[in-house]
């Protein structure tokens, strides 16, 4: 059996929605370089609908595929639906991930939630500069 499903390899080889949105309404970043994966999500939201989403990822094949799949799952969806996205849904849409790679789908879920929280925060404080919280991954602090 191959390491990854065909779906994972497809999203890894041809990642969807790669890039940056300069005037994003919400930005989320999770993970850290120490653990070997960082995901950054950029959202464009209009009338509570996610009209555009882009990502940048430093990480392994499944981290890149999870980011890509997560962006596909929320694009065009209402904020409430995107907020409810789970890592399980990401992994299932990819036809599964190896156990020790489930972490990557968790990062994708957290990156999107993080970006949505940034959006909500900015909506609540119109005109304030762009800020986003940086969520550390679970391995932080372990040597």
């Amino acid at each position: 059996m191959a390491l990854y499903s065909d779906k994972v390899m497809d999203h890894f080889r041809n990642p969807r929605n790669v890039g940056v949105i300069e005037d994003a309404d919400g930005v989320g970043e999770v993970g850290n370089a120490k653990c070997g994966d960082i995901m950054k999500m950029y959202l464009k939201i209009d009338n509570d609908i996610i009209t555009d989403v882009k990502f940048e990822t430093f990480g392994c094949g499944s981290a890149i595929a999870s980011s890509s799949m997560a962006t596909e799952l929320i694009k065009g969806k209402p904020v409430s639906e995107a907020m409810a996205l789970t890592n399980k849904a990401v992994a299932e849409a990819l036809d599964g991930l190896p156990d020790y790679k489930m972490h990557c789908s968790v990062l994708a879920e957290e990156a999107i939630r993080n970006a949505l929280e940034d959006y909500e925060r900015k909506k609540g404080a119109e005109g304030s500069p762009q800020v986003y919280t940086h969520v550390e991954c679970e391995c932080e602090g372990k040597e």
Partner: peptide, 14 residues
């Protein structure tokens, strides 16, 4: 610097 090894290996394999 700036990249992760596994994705490098998978793309080199391709």
């Amino acid at each position: 610097e700036g990249i992760e090894g596994e994705s490098l290996l998978l793309l080199l394999d391709d």
